[in-house]
Write a protein that binds this DNA or RNA. Structure first.
Lengths: 228, 228
DNA sequence: GTCGCCAAAGTTGTATACAATAAAGTTGCA
DNA sequence: TGCAACTTTATTGTATACAACTTTGGCGAC
């Protein structure tokens, strides 16, 4: 059941690699993604790099500035709200659908996901833990057998990772896994209504754990704000 | 309040032009989009054409076949169901939100949209009428002031146009505008709950007006189906 | 006569070279 | 000394050239 991954050196492979690096916070928001630089890293020409960056740009993970280059996107407060609004429309109902189709193998796979997340957290790899935490949501969409919605959620989850990088406030540390555990329990009990409600609340909790007050100074954006 | 449109000759402009042509059924599903050919039409190089085609590919409007080229996408029955499933999750609630924010000017704009649609239909421009009919849904999302969701709905609407081209069955002709009129009435009455319900039923009607029986022979796909 | 192989043509995939634009640093003048 | 305009430099935007692959037509063998 290997997910089909592109051969290394292709635009898709580079885009996937960059997306993961962004998702894992190894590339913070605002990081410049020079074409020559990336081409040298991956041993490919700018043409392929550009294709990858364009793909990420279309998913709102990188922001293109004309004649300036590509940068890891810095979602605004407004954008952050919109992303979670969209997720709240898609994911609860998708969790409901997924629950009704879920097999025992699926549930075990989700449990394994959480275990891996914990392991990463224990190993101090918080970026990887965050990535796996996002994948959890995508896996649920996949189990709902809705590839179109899965694609959308995948984009929203990646963007959420950027939002977390910018607006996360320390206090609410890792209540994450609690919600995910509860979801798995609902799946195991085949309680679709409960799963839907849990997902809804989980997303709500995520939003409230963010600091989305207007115009909080985003690190690295200050100089740009003045320049403009 | 001119919507910012890219200068002609840019990848964005070409992509927008092609998207509209696809939406208006001037480019039927399965049409080959040769790079040299398009470059000659628009007076630009293949580089720019490729960027435009890649953009449309990411929106699932064109399908890329390795070393074969780009073709106007031919959504499968499964994909068709998924697109409308996604729309049913997004649009009713968005109509609700839009209703609560809607101004009198907004309502007049929507009415003007429908009038233009009728005019196009009377002029025999059924493609343009279909395009405007889709724009109606996008305008509502815009009025909900949710640009992220608007982008998603925009993609889904364009894909719906391809689905209609493939699976539309003659009988249910143009009950379309009826539903849109009813929606405007709900907006005018500031009845958000009703608007949500109307949108939900409207999308349901759309799906049931399609012929989504498995493996109905799609024009132009037959030879490919046999080849595979 | 049909099947299979081979060759040639056309198209996309990739890399490189050139042009345009924006940022930054420098120099000159007030 | 401060500001402004210019020059320089580095980067992206665009076009073109080459390579790889798929397809299609023809030729030969069975």
């Amino acid at each position: 059941m290997n997910e089909l991954q592109s051969k290394p050196g292709t635009a898709d492979a580079v885009a996937a690699d960059l997306e993961r690096a962004i998702h894992e916070h190894r590339l913070p928001p605002g990081t410049k993604l020079g074409e020559d630089e990336l081409g040298e890293v991956y041993g490919i020409s700018r043409t392929t790099v550009r294709a990858a960056l364009q793909s990420l740009g279309h998913r709102h993970l990188v922001q293109h500035k004309r004649n300036r280059g590509a940068f890891v996107a810095q979602p605004t407060v407004r954008e952050a709200r919109e992303v979670f609004e969209a997720r709240s429309l898609l994911e609860p109902r998708t969790a409901h659908s997924a629950c009704k189709r879920m097999t025992d193998d699926n549930i075990r796979a989700l449990q394994a996901h959480i275990d891996a997340e914990h392991a990463a957290l224990d190993a101090g790899e918080s970026g990887r833990a965050l990535y796996l935490s996002g994948r959890f949501h995508i896996e649920i969409a996949r189990m709902a057998d809705q590839s179109t919605i899965e694609t959308m959620i995948s984009e929203l989850v990646s963007r959420s990772s950027l939002i977390i990088a910018l607006y996360w406030q320390r206090r609410a540390a890792l209540c994450e896994s609690q919600a995910h555990h509860a979801l798995i329990s609902a799946f195991a009990d085949r309680d679709a209504e409960l799963a839907e409600e849990l997902m809804k609340n989980h997303l709500l909790d995520l939003v409230t754990s963010l600091d989305l007050r207007n115009s909080s100074s985003i690190p690295g954006t200050l100089k740009e704000a003045l320049a403009k």
